[in-house]
């Protein structure tokens, strides 16, 4: 070991780290390619499974998939909830965004004209165990059912007084605010499309 520091030492020291990072990155990409479809399939099954919970009265087997373009210009797949008599009763809208720890993915149920939220489900989250992960609990999620969508949801730390207020989870204000912000964004993004005209959206064949 020479005592004089050399400036071009970085590569000599770090080549193994760089090589391993590339190797592992390649390995992970291969895993993602081979398992990604399966994971997406599992998520889709879960989405279908919770549709009757998100839009009360909806029948899982009658759900139609529609591909629409939101206000942000991106195409997104949304789910049209239909009840046993064939009546169109609501929509299930997928959304996602940054939470406290990692990405949070949600499904929001709204009624047919998107004026009212009918339910909320958390598809994926990695919030703090014992605090933020209570966003998946029905105590927290049930607050969203029945909220009007004419104004954005707000998170408060006391008992809600206004109709658009959600009570934050104790010790997990950021997680609560993240979920509410994701719900707001998701609905704001798709509200116009839903109201505009349902007939411009054609059902898409079953595909991943």
């Amino acid at each position: 070991m020479s005592t004089a520091p050399k400036k071009n030492n970085y590569l000599a020291d770090g080549w193994l780290v760089i090589l391993l990072a590339l190797l592992y990155g390649g390995g992970l990409a291969a895993v993602q390619v081979s398992l990604g479809g399966r994971i997406a399939e599992n998520r889709k099954n879960e989405t279908y499974h919770v549709i009757p919970e998100l839009v009360p009265g909806a029948v899982e087997a009658k759900t139609e998939e529609h591909t629409v373009t939101g206000s942000n210009g991106k195409t997104i797949k949304i789910y049209k909830a239909i009840d046993a008599s064939g009546q169109h009763i609501g929509w299930v809208l997928p959304g996602g965004g940054q939470g406290f720890a990692d990405r949070i993915d949600i499904l929001a149920g709204v009624n047919a004209d998107a004026r009212q939220i009918t339910g909320l489900y958390v598809l994926g989250q990695k919030e703090t165990p014992g605090l933020g992960d209570y966003i998946t609990g029905s105590d927290f999620r049930s607050q969203y059912a029945g909220k009007p969508t004419d104004q954005p949801l707000a998170v408060v730390k006391t008992d809600p007084t206004a109709p658009n207020e959600i009570r934050a989870l104790t010790g997990a204000t950021i997680s609560s605010e993240s979920v509410s912000a994701i719900v707001n964004d998701t609905i704001a993004n798709l509200k116009d499309v839903i109201n505009e005209n349902a007939s411009t959206t054609a059902p898409v064949p079953d595909q991943i």
């Binding site: 780290v17 391993l20 992970l28 895993v31 399966r38 994971i39 599992n42 879960e46």
Partner: peptide, 19 residues
């Protein structure tokens, strides 16, 4: 780096086969 890679693989396998 090594551990994180294998954990991610384990996580994906669980999500794919034991959702």
């Amino acid at each position: 780096l090594t551990i994180a890679t294998f954990v991610t693989i384990a996580d994906k396998i669980l999500a794919a086969f034991m959702y």
